[in-house]
Amino acid sequence: MYRIVIFLSFILLSSFNFSQEKSCCNVSVSFASFGEDKSFREVHQLPKDFVLKDAKGRMIKFSTADGKEANAYYIQSPKPSKKFIFVFHEWWGLNDNIKREADELQKELGNVNIMALDLYDGQVATKREDAAKLMQANNKTRSMEIIRGAIEFAGKDAEIGTIGWCFGGGWSLLASISAGKKGKACVVYYGIIENTPETFKDLNAPVLGIFAEKDGWITPEVYGNLEKNLKAAGKKVTIKSFIAEHAFANPSNSNFDEKATKEAKELTLKFFKENLMK
């Protein structure tokens, strides 16, 4: 499976003729290629109808350097705080499930600003085929502009943590790399980017990677290679794998593993408290 991912990545990179200077954006292409895999689409169950009630946050817009505006679900810290967590959605888009995750983070961590970034510019899928199309059509340059705009919004003295699931897991890594010295904690749930040790030269944040041993795409070999390259780059990384399937932490998924999800969330909160909230 790892060889297939690399082969697909090579084809896609060649087709799009990305320049070397944009290598930080290329890394999500191989993940997007999973959208062509019927079995990958089918492992993602249709999201259960869920409407977030008593939301803690609100939708905001902020400027991006490409002259546009970006969207985010924003929960402001109850007390003035320079600490931020950027939340990255799954392939479905910024739906109420992700907003609920953002609300829970703010509730558990306290004085921190939460921004759930919308990398699809307002589009949200409710069908697998539409989610696959959105993921494959995701504009990497635009997404990086959204991330940079969020970093600018947070301010020059901000301390930034990131978290994402599946498609968003790779973007969590990219955002922490882009944050540079402002990056304090990066959490990745069963997501990946193409990487070598050089990929992480600007990464300041320690990384917590949460993966599933039964994942047919982000396999132990794939996330083992991620761990190896992070360590080779001299970065702090903790990998926790569960005997579970891809997307095990999504309560809308038939592969939802309540016990593993509870443990993963406890690890996530502990990680943020130790690295961002101290």
Results as ranks from 00 to 15, higher is better:
125 A>C: 09
175 A>Y: 07
236 K>M: 10
49 D>L: 12
32 A>H: 09
181 K>I: 00
28 S>Y: 00
4 I>H: 12
177 I>D: 09
64 T>K: 06
211 F>D: 01
246 H>T: 05
221 E>S: 12
173 L>E: 10
278 K>Y: 06
191 G>S: 03
55 A>F: 02
30 S>H: 11
76 Q>R: 14
114 I>Q: 11
61 K>A: 03
66 D>I: 02
46 L>Y: 00
119 L>P: 07
20 Q>R: 15
52 L>R: 13
158 A>T: 01
260 A>Q: 12
248 F>N: 10
205 A>D: 04
175 A>G: 09
237 V>W: 09
144 M>H: 12
260 A>M: 10
265 K>I: 07
41 R>T: 00
70 A>Y: 10
176 S>D: 12
127 K>F: 03
35 G>H: 09
46 L>K: 14
148 R>W: 01
63 S>A: 14
260 A>V: 09
72 A>R: 11
15 S>R: 15
119 L>G: 07
240 K>Y: 05
11 I>D: 06
268 T>R: 11
195 N>Q: 13
60 I>C: 06
215 D>I: 03
181 K>V: 02
137 A>M: 06
27 V>L: 01
19 S>L: 13
273 K>P: 03
223 Y>G: 02
22 K>E: 15
213 E>F: 00
26 N>I: 06
190 Y>K: 02
144 M>V: 01
157 D>H: 10
262 K>M: 05
222 V>Y: 13
105 L>Y: 15
147 I>A: 08
64 T>H: 02
27 V>Y: 01
52 L>T: 04
123 Q>K: 15
61 K>F: 06
31 F>M: 09
18 F>K: 03
85 I>Y: 08
33 S>T: 14
136 Q>G: 05
212 A>C: 09
278 K>T: 11
4 I>W: 13
11 I>P: 02
39 S>V: 08
215 D>T: 06
203 L>R: 08
109 L>I: 09
63 S>K: 15
214 K>W: 00
13 L>W: 13
224 G>M: 13
269 L>F: 14
193 I>P: 00
212 A>I: 03
94 L>H: 04
152 E>T: 13
76 Q>W: 02
3 R>K: 14
181 K>Q: 14
257 D>I: 05
197 P>K: 12
175 A>L: 07
12 L>Y: 13
48 K>T: 11
220 P>Y: 09
171 W>I: 00
124 V>S: 07
72 A>W: 10
43 V>H: 01
272 F>Y: 12
90 E>S: 13
170 G>R: 10
191 G>H: 04
81 S>K: 05
147 I>G: 06
164 G>R: 08
203 L>V: 05
127 K>G: 02
84 F>G: 01
232 A>G: 01
85 I>P: 02
87 V>C: 12
16 F>L: 15
82 K>D: 13
218 I>P: 00
213 E>D: 13
77 S>R: 03
171 W>Y: 15
1 M>Y: 07
239 I>G: 01
273 K>F: 04
53 K>L: 10
228 K>D: 11
228 K>P: 03
135 M>E: 13
248 F>I: 05
218 I>L: 06
144 M>G: 00
226 L>F: 14
73 Y>E: 10
151 I>W: 06
76 Q>Y: 02
207 V>R: 05
91 W>D: 02
118 D>Y: 08
36 E>K: 13
16 F>W: 11
118 D>K: 08
